[in-house]
Design a protein around this nucleic acid. Sequence first.
DNA 1: TTGAAAGCGCTAACAT
DNA 2: ATGTTAGCGCTTTCAA
Lengths: 333, 333
Amino acid sequence: MSPTIRDVAAAAGVSVATVSKYINGAQRFSAPVEARLKEAIATLGYRSNPLARSMITGRTRTIGLTILDISNPHFTNVVKGANRIALRHDYTLLLVDIDEQQARERPLIEALSQRVDGLIVSSRLPDEEAHWMLDLGKPVVLLRNAEALPIPSVGIDNRLASHMLARHLLNLGHRHIAYLGFGQARINDERIRGVRECLEEAGLELDVHDAHAPTALAGEHACSRVMLGPKRPQAVICYNDLIALGFMKEAATLGIRVPQDVSVTGIDNVPYGAYAAPGLTTIDIQSERMGELAMQKLIDALAGHPDPGNSMFEPRLIVRESTASAAAPTASA
Amino acid sequence: MSPTIRDVAAAAGVSVATVSKYINGAQRFSAPVEARLKEAIATLGYRSNPLARSMITGRTRTIGLTILDISNPHFTNVVKGANRIALRHDYTLLLVDIDEQQARERPLIEALSQRVDGLIVSSRLPDEEAHWMLDLGKPVVLLRNAEALPIPSVGIDNRLASHMLARHLLNLGHRHIAYLGFGQARINDERIRGVRECLEEAGLELDVHDAHAPTALAGEHACSRVMLGPKRPQAVICYNDLIALGFMKEAATLGIRVPQDVSVTGIDNVPYGAYAAPGLTTIDIQSERMGELAMQKLIDALAGHPDPGNSMFEPRLIVRESTASAAAPTASA
DNA sequence: TTGAAAGCGCTAACAT
DNA sequence: ATGTTAGCGCTTTCAA
């Protein structure tokens, strides 16, 4: 067994209380006591047991972070940002990748909440079913726009984001625009609405398809369905970058050229959109800063300075080569 | 405050020991006791305090995972795999992204070790300086080939991996091959050796360049240096996929065509290599399975079935479009 | 500035 | 099958 505070106390000839205070730098000590303490700790190789401390103080210096899918670079970047701020404040991340356990989501989060000082939660749960998070007894920050909920949150304006994409495509002269979504995501509807709003102003209709998953593979699968079915679109707005990347790859396989035959857009601005060819036109949502801000809000709350309310990052259009003007009509119907 | 085991005991009219045993499902109970227990727990909303339990049992059901950079999809996939196995065995991940704190690496890991049952460590430390990990008092699995160390480990055969790439390029008729590495990585030398071995058999020399970072951005920066300096190569073997992706993007910007003007390879088989254009020829190292196996080894060790020694995944060449035969000599010197 | 003592919430002998 | 009791390693009054 490793040495305890009692071993140190005995070796230094002081009481355990003194050792405790010394470790926590709680006060000043007489020179001889300090010297003996220092030496005893060094020779014994004593290291304080964080569990025992946490049990008393009720603080673990740990933040729980639940993420939908760490494989998605958007969430990877959220974690990166959150981790940076956490480390800076001497907190550590307890990570739970919900992806494959959606049914166990609530018990997983409840269990997690007992082991941390606070939580950052990304979840598929609709707002109406998220109220139990208030009873966790721990500060929570949601990764979404939860204006309706009395829980601090960080998100982006999805309606505006997709509106911007639609406008961009209209400006390029496209008239037949399709949306390739992911119906299981809460925000899918917001993104559809943003596109619809924009198209309606122009008197245009929107064809909506579903990719069944927010992944590149799902984008690949959906491509032929969208492009080779009736009403072939001139431009496709994808739910996210991964779907768009998969879509573009499959389009190439099918002999459909991007952007000449079809313009494609994503949302998220994951790093690999820039390394695809053509580069993916997308909306930057500042994933890493979202993680940073969520963690900052949580740490502020932990420090007694809660910042309730929703923080929304402003979307920014990133134009690359996957979108082009509809000028030259091609082999499309 | 939330109810404790004592509150439950009082409410149910039994002793705390009985409550404890009930919670842990340690034995059978008489019907009336069980009923009262169940009700007391339900009405009080009692939930056992994992910290208090951990202090006694000495187990936290948490695994520490230190990763060099969660932004690198290779490591993301390692985390994904590790998380999957952990969740299956009811363990949670305590994640530390070392990236920005390389100097604090050792203290960070030492602190982490106190809060977990075991650790999976990915680190830049050379084998010679990793011995202190044996004194952590917790099982450790290293993410590397640590045959020299008495620590279980999971890795790939780097020499073989790069040898395979070199052979692939030789078979395509390339004679002037360059290596674009990342000198700060331990395994960089192994990868150079693999290429050199292969080239020496053919009586060829290798030009070695350095990207300064294992990132796509670093690959972009290095491209003109490699391609527009003296001795322009016909093929470039990159330290990893990210560097290769960056390299390819910058090559396109410079008007250098891949693979017609230069063949490019990576290592890792990150998902986005398949979505780049041209698709990136690379070595699959089974990142996700590495994470799974590392976690499995650790959990086995925790269960008293240690599997010491090094496990090596076999590299597999994935040929895509970024490599092609040197048949048609182009504008290269 | 230092120490004694009372727990934090729980488990694990051991007894009944 | 249930209860008693002694702590796990530490912090925190409170007193000296």
